[in-house]
């Protein structure tokens, strides 16, 4: 079942803190494949967290390859049990999310981030990401903490309809 439906609010799994994965076994590796496959078939999608496909585990995939705002680019990578080691240089941008399809919001996020986690081979990796890749990583890690971008906006007037022309 490599491609899974992407859940939207108010799916409870999107607002709960995901559980640690722990050891990387065949099930975890299958989850990584599902995340990658689901991301790849979703137009414009640059990242996906496990809760978005209904799995309450701490795992995400990111791939900002070719995005015009990307500076650092590590290609397609999956991290289990990610930890943000450092984050600095807050920058605002307007975000959307597959799990909140009707809205966008202005969110300030760090643009210099060091994140570490376990890859599907069970190897601990530490990545220095910046600009758009940093934003994508932090957005996905928020999903693992039960947060969506709506929880990060500065206030009511920082939330906008996703689409304005019908």
């Amino acid at each position: 079942m490599p491609v899974r439906p992407v859940l939207t609010l108010p799916a409870p799994v999107l607002t709960c803190r995901a559980r640690p994965v722990g050891s990387i076994d065949d099930e975890a590796r299958a989850l990584a494949v599902d995340l990658i496959d689901t991301m790849k078939v979703s137009p414009g999608c640059v990242g996906l967290a496990a809760p978005q496909i209904g799995v309450g585990l701490r795992a995400f995939v990111v791939d900002v390859t070719g995005h015009r705002k990307a500076q650092s680019c590590h290609g397609t990578f999956v991290l289990f049990d990610p930890v943000v080691d450092s984050a600095s240089d807050l920058q605002p941008a307007r975000e959307g999310c597959m799990s909140v399809p009707d809205l966008t919001g202005d969110v300030r996020r760090a643009s210099q981030v060091v994140v570490s986690g376990i890859d599907p081979q069970g190897v601990r990796r530490t990545l220095h990401v910046d600009a758009f890749e940093a934003r994508a990583v932090l957005h996905e890690i928020d999903h693992l903490d039960g947060l969506v971008f709506l929880d990060r906006v500065a206030g009511p007037h920082a939330v906008f309809p996703r689409k304005v022309y019908r």
């Binding site: 939207t8 979703s42 137009p43 999608c45 009707d102």
Partner: peptide
């Protein structure tokens, strides 16, 4: 947008 592949499809308008 409720299904895989829908997100982002309307951003070009």
């Amino acid at each position: 947008s409720r299904t895989v592949g829908g997100a982002g499809a309307d951003l070009g308008e």
